[in-house]
Design a protein around this nucleic acid. Structure first.
Length: 235
DNA sequence: GCCCAGGCTTAAA
DNA sequence: TTTAAGCATGGG
């Protein structure tokens, strides 16, 4: 099913600048290999290019909650703690009490909230059948970005992920207003880039990299690799 | 010490 | 329906 999505399709958006930006970011930063997961028998998540087991898919989902408004570095520490405790699996996460779980994920911040939400999420994902976006959105603490991250990176489904970096970067360029509803921004991207899981995954990861490296709160436009395309800095 | 980090929910205006 | 506060650790 996923290999169906990998075939080249004509750019549905003609001369829209979205794929040009993608190519520039890709050339500058290279493959991102997001989302990191823990190899079998390992402790730390590694950039191996995404999950390949059911346990690793669960790990992506848990990581998506842990990294909410939190650096990946801190989320990663929490994941390592769960691995060391042997709890990063359906039985482990649904079985542990909330207090103990909170203690283990402490480095990720908001640990009381996140512990509660991870248990509910693990229970949902442990059920029969494939998770879906709407099902995830009904869970406490799973909003649109988290749901889309889980579906795209965990389960290889075609949902473009919109985050604060996406709004900041493309708002500055002038391709979006910045204050639109989540789904409105998402629709802009999904109607301007080819419907391929790999492209969605890579594009979002490149946006994050760019947001961290140069399009920060106070941007370093001198180092910007897409400055020529940017309404703020390039012209 | 201050600011920020790959959100989300709830209460108040 | 929009805005603000609360959640919390760790790194620059």
């Amino acid at each position: 099913m996923q290999s169906e999505d990998m075939r080249r399709v004509p750019d549905p958006c003609g001369d829209s600048p979205f794929m040009g930006i993608y190519e520039s970011l890709s050339a500058a930063y290279g493959p991102r290999r997001w989302w990191p997961v823990t190899p079998a028998g390992g402790v730390e998540p590694e950039y191996t290019g995404g999950p390949s087991t059911r346990i690793q898919m669960l790990e992506v989902a848990v990581g998506a909650v842990l990294t909410q408004n939190t650096s990946w570095k801190n989320a990663s520490k929490a994941i390592a703690n769960l691995n060391r405790a042997g709890l990063l699996n359906p039985e482990g996460l649904t079985g542990i009490d909330t207090k103990s779980l909170a203690g283990l994920i402490r480095p990720s911040g908001y640990f009381n909230q996140k512990a509660e939400r991870i248990k509910v999420l693990a229970a949902y994902l442990s059920g029969n059948g494939r998770p879906d976006r709407d099902g995830l959105l009904e869970l406490e603490g799973i909003g649109p970005e988290t749901a889309d991250s889980i579906m795209l990176y965990g389960y290889g489904e075609l949902h473009f992920v919109v985050d604060a970096y996406t709004r900041r970067i493309f708002g500055r360029i002038g391709l979006i207003g910045g204050g639109e509803a989540y789904e409105a921004v998402q629709l802009v991207f999904e109607s301007n880039i080819p419907p391929e899981v790999h492209v969605y995954q890579e594009y979002h990861a490149l946006i994050v990299e760019h947001g961290k490296r140069s399009c920060t709160r106070s941007p370093d436009c001198g180092e910007c690799v897409i400055g020529a395309l940017c309404g703020r800095c390039g012209l």
